[in-house]
Computed example of a mutant assay.
Amino acid sequence: MKIAVLAPFAFPVREPYAGGQERHTAQLVRGMAARGHSVTLLARPGSDAPEGVRLLPITGGYAAALRQLRAGGFDIVHNNSLDYLPVLTAWRMNCPVVTTLHTPPYRALRLAARVGRWSDRLHFVTVSAFMQRLWAPYTGRSTIIYNGIDPQAWPFSPQGEPRRAVWSGRISPEKGTEYAIAAASQAGYALDLAGPIHDQAYFAREVSPYLNDRIRYHGSLSGTELARLMGGAGVGLFTSVWDEPFGLVIPEMLACGTPVAGFGSGAATELLYEGVGQLVEKRDVTALVTAMNAAARLQRRHCRAHSERNFHLETMISGYEELYRRILNRR
Rank of each mutant, 00 (worst) to 15 (best):
H302D: 15
Y324R: 12
L237E: 06
F311Q: 04
I327P: 01
R309T: 15
M316D: 08
T290S: 14
R301T: 13
V289I: 05
E322R: 15
R301V: 13
D284P: 00
A233E: 09
L248V: 09
G257Y: 07
R325T: 13
E281N: 11
W242K: 00
T239A: 06
L229V: 11
M316E: 15
W242Y: 14
T290Q: 14
G264R: 13
E322K: 14
L226A: 03
A261W: 02
K282C: 07
S240A: 15
L237P: 02
N310V: 02
L328N: 03
A255D: 05
T290D: 13
V285G: 06
L313S: 08
G232W: 06
H312I: 01
C303I: 04
T286P: 00
V260G: 02
E225T: 00
A268H: 04
Q299A: 14
P245R: 03
E314D: 15
A294E: 14
C256Y: 02
M230D: 01
L248D: 04
T258I: 04
M230C: 07
Y320W: 13
L323G: 05
L248F: 02
Q278E: 15
V280N: 07
M292D: 12
R283M: 12
L237K: 05
A268E: 07
P251C: 08
E314N: 14
T315F: 01
A255K: 00
Y273A: 06
A261R: 10
G247K: 04
Y324Q: 12
C256I: 09
A294Y: 00
D284F: 06
A233P: 05
